[in-house]
Design a protein around this nucleic acid. Structure first.
Lengths: 198, 198
DNA sequence: CTTTATTGCGCAATGG
DNA sequence: ACCATTGCGCAATAAA
């Protein structure tokens, strides 16, 4: 019973890793932007020192993103927050410069990417779809992780069984070898005896 | 080389699961909370059906960061958004009565949990600390997942090797058994011959 | 009680 | 255009 289940689990596990998927992209370097919709107006903008030595972007508040590298400008987002006045543009401090004019068009920042109001039905529709996709993706990830753990445990058990089997076989082999050596010596003695007696 | 690495990896992997930590809590069933309160008026409240057939908890729960989702009730915790008109004091609505005098201190409900303004330095401090904790926790989770995957792969390899070893031992055993049976028959013949010749 | 650790969620950027 | 992934911050809650 356990064997059959093991197989199925491994089966699932294997299917969970089609092509290893992505490359993880350690540093997306996204932009950020003031997400502030509706209310939520002003707010802090507090310094956010990021206590630890982590020099993360830590822009707190809404926009987040920017992943580990907050120091990247970009200011993407072309969302026109019709109602929200508090569009705080996170840090973007003095060190920030506008290199867009020096970048090739293909590398240029979003520029006029077509503003989308957060109030628009389209925006909400997109957001909702993405939220659904996110839930789906995370469920998938959770299942995959679970399968991997189960797989590891099952492989561990299987390993123990195999080790035991190897132990048995080795012992049996030693026994037979011993017997054979005995027979060999015995046969030699008998052979010698036989020859001498002839 | 691989063996030593396997050991170390498994070592790490094991340490990644101290006490299994949490219980995973598949269905937190958070306070969901009274959708009844507050406005929550118009707006979508889109089905969220979770297209897939996944009957997730879908608590939608807390109004997210109030962000663009105003359609969510709850209106977050008891944070006093000084300027934000939507600072609805989540549950604790009219039906709320003060049972505190009747409850044991240890069992008391949230009650006046002490309002904290989002503008307050304390709020930002707490948020920042939590954000750091979250990053830390997620890094940890990522590492654990990675270790589990590596462990699974290594166990798989080890399994193959063990299977091969078993195959070798089995074959060797068969060979010896065969030889022994030959010797046995030979010995029987010799024995019979010897006895008859005496 | 406070503080940290986990977890689910939505957002936004990005990969495919 | 679409969905899939992923890092992030928020808030609730579990665990110290």
């Amino acid at each position: 019973m356990s064997d059959s289940r093991v197989s199925s689990v491994i089966q699932e596990w294997v299917s969970s890793y089609p092509g290893q998927g992505h490359g993880q992209t350690l540093n997306p370097v996204s932009s950020n932007q003031a997400a502030s919709t509706n209310q939520m107006n002003q707010m802090d903008m507090i310094s956010y020192s990021h206590s630890q030595g982590l020099m993360r972007g830590g822009d707190d508040r809404v926009a987040e993103q920017m992943m580990g590298l907050s120091y990247l400008p970009y200011t993407t987002s072309c969302l026109t927050n019709t109602s929200s006045p508090s569009s705080t543009n996170h840090h973007q401090s003095s060190t920030q410069q506008d290199f867009s004019p020096f970048l090739l068009p293909t590398l240029r920042a979003p520029v006029t990417k077509r503003s989308i109001s957060k109030d628009s039905a389209e925006y909400r529709l997109r957001r909702e779809r993405n939220n659904i996709a996110v839930r789906k993706s995370r469920d998938k990830a959770r299942r995959r992780i679970l399968l991997t753990q189960q797989r590891a445990l099952q492989l561990q058990e299987e390993n123990q069984k195999l080790q035991m089997r190897i132990g048995q076989l080795t012992q049996e082999l030693d026994t037979l070898k011993h017997i054979l050596s005995q027979r060999h010596m015995q046969g030699a003695e008998e052979g010698a005896a036989g020859e001498s007696s002839i």
